[in-house]
Simulated assay, not measured.
Amino acid sequence: MAEFNDPRTTTTGFGSVPRAGGQVVFDAGLRKHMLSIYNYMTSGVLLTGIVALMTYTSGMAATFASGPLMWIVALSPLAIVFAMSFGANRFSKTTLQMLFWAFAALMGLSLSTIFLRFTGASIAVTFFATAAAFAGLSLFGYTTQKSLSGWGSFLIMGVVGLLVAMIANMFLQSPGLMYAISFIGVLIFAGLTAYDTQRLKNEYAMLRGTEFAGKAVVLGALTLYLDFINMFQFLLSFMGNRE
C-alpha cells in the first residue's frame, strides 16, 4: 500500500523524519503507510461504535449481557486476534482485512452492553476524551526522537498483571480494587499507544518493498485499535456515570 520509490524533499509535517543538523527528510512512503494504519483503525472504531449503538437501540444488548451468548461474543474477538497474529504469514491481505472487520463488528456486539451500565452522556464524553488522549499520545510516539523500546517489556508485564488482578476481582468484587485496575489500565494503554506507534513507524523501514507491507497495515491497525478500545473501557470504568 505504500509507495516505495517516493521522492524525498526537505519539508516538515506528518511523516517527517528528523536528521542530524536539523535537516528533515519527508518520507512520503512512511506517511502513506502510517495514514493507512490510522484510516483502518479509525474505520474499525467507527464500525464498532455503529454496531454497538444499533444493537442497543434494537433492544438486543441485554441478550449479550449474560448467559452463553455473552461468552461467545466476548471470546470470539479474542479468537480472531490470535488467528490474525499467528496466521499473518499464511493469510492473504484480503483475509486479514475481512478478519479485522469481523473483529470490529463483534466488538460492537460486546460493547453494546456498556449502554446498559453507563449513561449515554458519560459514554460520549469518555469516548472523545479517549480520542483526544490517543491522538496526543500517538503523535508523541511518532515524533519523539527518544527510543521507547525499553517500555515494551514493562508494559506487557503490566498487561499480564492487569489480567491477573481482573480475574482475582471477579471473586473478590472489591470496588477499591476495581478503581485501581481501571486507573492503572488507563496508564498502561496510554503508554502502549505511544510505544506501539513508534514501533509501527520503525518497522516500516524493514517492511519497505516487501510483500508483507500491506498485511502490516492491517495488523498495525489492529494493534492501535486494541490500545484505543482498552484505554476507552478502563477510562469509562474509572469516570463513567452509571445508570
Rank of each mutant, 00 (worst) to 15 (best):
A105S: 06
S58E: 04
M84E: 03
A65V: 00
A105F: 01
G13C: 11
A190K: 05
G67S: 09
M170C: 07
G150V: 06
L200R: 08
A102M: 12
V218N: 02
L116K: 10
E203R: 15
M98C: 05
Q145N: 09
I72W: 13
M231Y: 01
Q145Y: 01
Y204Q: 05
M170F: 14
G44R: 08
M170H: 10
T144I: 04
G136F: 11
Y179A: 14
M84D: 01
T63V: 08
L137F: 04
T11A: 11
R208D: 03
F103Y: 10
M239S: 13
I181G: 06
F189H: 14
T10A: 13
G59Y: 00
S138Y: 04
G150Q: 07
G13H: 11
M178S: 13
F82A: 15
L75A: 12
K215G: 00
L106N: 08
I72R: 11
L162N: 08
A79D: 02
L163W: 08
F118I: 10
L148H: 06
S147G: 06
A2D: 10
Q173F: 06
N5Q: 14
N39H: 03
F100Q: 04
S237W: 09
K93H: 12
N241I: 14
L111M: 06
W101L: 14
L222N: 00
Q233G: 03
L139H: 14
Y56D: 02
T42A: 15
M107T: 13
L47S: 03
Y56C: 01
G152R: 10
M98D: 02
F183I: 10
F103D: 00
A132I: 15
A61E: 05
I37E: 12
F103K: 03
F64D: 06
N39E: 07
I156F: 07
T193N: 09
M84Q: 08
G59P: 10
L137H: 02
A62Y: 05
L53Q: 15
F91R: 01
L177S: 07
L207C: 08
G49L: 15
S153R: 15
G13Q: 12
G161C: 09
T130G: 10
K146V: 14
D196G: 07
N169V: 12
T197I: 03
L226F: 05
F171N: 11
T10C: 09
R31L: 01
I114C: 06
S58G: 08
T197W: 01
V125F: 13
I156E: 03
L235W: 06
F232A: 01
F91V: 00
G67R: 09
R199K: 13
Q198M: 00
S85N: 12
T48K: 10
S182R: 05
M54R: 11
K146W: 08
L192F: 13
G21I: 06
T130P: 03
F171G: 06
S110C: 13
F100E: 02
S147E: 07
L111T: 08
S16P: 14
G158P: 07
